[in-house]
Amino acid sequence: MLILTLFLQFMKYGLLCFGGGYMIIPLLYTDLVENASLFTSEGYGNLLAVSQLTPGAVSVNTATYVGFMQDGFWGAVAATIGLCMPTFILCSTVLSFLNFYKNKSWVIGFFKGIKWAAFMMILSAIILFAKVSIIDISKGIEKLKIYPFEIGIVIMTICMAKKFPFTILLFLSACIGWGMSYL
């Protein structure tokens, strides 16, 4: 029964994630910490840290962890599949639908506009990642902190992107960061 509950609960989250898996974070907080008190606030913070620092999609990581904590292996499977299924079905449906109507003028207009939306989305991702890697404005604009070393990593990535695959660059920057933390 617990498996079914987990499945339905995460299916709900999957439907409510507008604009990416990050939306699951406040929803989960309400349900797990405030209503069910399965986690303390601190434990929930650590859960988020683990999900963000391990590879893969953040919300999938969170779902697997919560499911595993509640009902072992099958709980994890149920939660993850529950989370991914609405997205999968919705996205497949939208794609087939758009393909079917692709000669209609409003669909063509939509695809022309979507290019601009995608560009804006990339720019907002740049701002997001800049805030968590090279600048720190969490303590206000006066106490702005800039990390020159991480800017070096950014430049290195841009220069080496033509010659090396990204996977190697990611590994390399992780190793450099690990090594630098000892200095």
């Binding site: 434990g43 620092l53 740049i126 968590v132 950014v154 990535t157 992780a174 960061g177 933390s181």
Partner: peptide, 29 residues
């Protein structure tokens, strides 16, 4: 367990990985 996670070296490594991702996004933009 979830409690003992704040490893300084690990956090530094991940910050550099995020900087690398930032570089990729700049190229994509």
């Amino acid at each position: 367990p979830l409690e003992n996670l704040s490893n300084f070296h690990l956090l530094e490594a991940f910050q550099c990985v995020r900087a690398c991702v930032l570089g990729m996004f700049l190229l994509l933009a």
